[in-house]
């Protein structure tokens, strides 16, 4: 396995933190992605900014894919692929949607924003979902 450059993850994390801070200071909104898309469906009332944010996320990823090799020498990112059979992927997606809705947040809302706000609920959530995810990989392996 080749050595992992520490710069892309550090810079990427910095951008994610900056995005969360900009949305909080500018609009007073938590950059929690599960909540953002979960409230696109009725009876949602504030949908336009959510579509703008989510659309911009897609564009941001594509722009970064163009810029990253020039910014980080040696940056190589294979086109991401999903792991597992279609049934496995469907089960995983269902659990992610269900769990983040019931648990009121995911890696961004609880993990980044919640921990930065010293939220007790987020702290509990992060400990639980990280532990369960690590246990899941230990049991199923990387399929």
């Amino acid at each position: 396995m080749e050595a992992i450059s520490i710069w892309p993850p550090l810079v990427g994390g910095l951008l994610i933190g900056l995005a969360s801070a900009v949305l909080w200071i500018g609009n007073g909104r938590i950059a929690g992605i599960s909540g953002l898309f979960g409230q696109l469906l009725p009876p949602a009332r504030t949908v336009i900014w959510r579509f703008v944010f989510l659309g911009a996320m897609i564009a941001g990823g594509l722009l970064a894919a163009l810029a990253a090799p020039g910014l980080f020498p040696g940056f190589s990112a294979p086109t991401p692929e999903l792991v597992g059979s279609p049934v496995w992927i469907a089960a995983a997606g269902l659990l992610v949607g269900l769990g983040t809705k019931i648990g009121n947040g995911c890696t961004s809302g609880h993990g980044v924003c919640g921990l930065a706000r010293f939220s007790k609920r987020s702290f509990v959530s992060v400990i639980v979902f990280f532990s369960v995810a690590i246990a899941t990989v230990a049991i199923t392996g990387v399929v």
Partner: peptide, 9 residues
């Protein structure tokens, strides 16, 4: 914020 978030990820 969306652009920064997607680029960061």
């Amino acid at each position: 914020a969306g652009l920064l978030f997607g680029a960061g990820l």
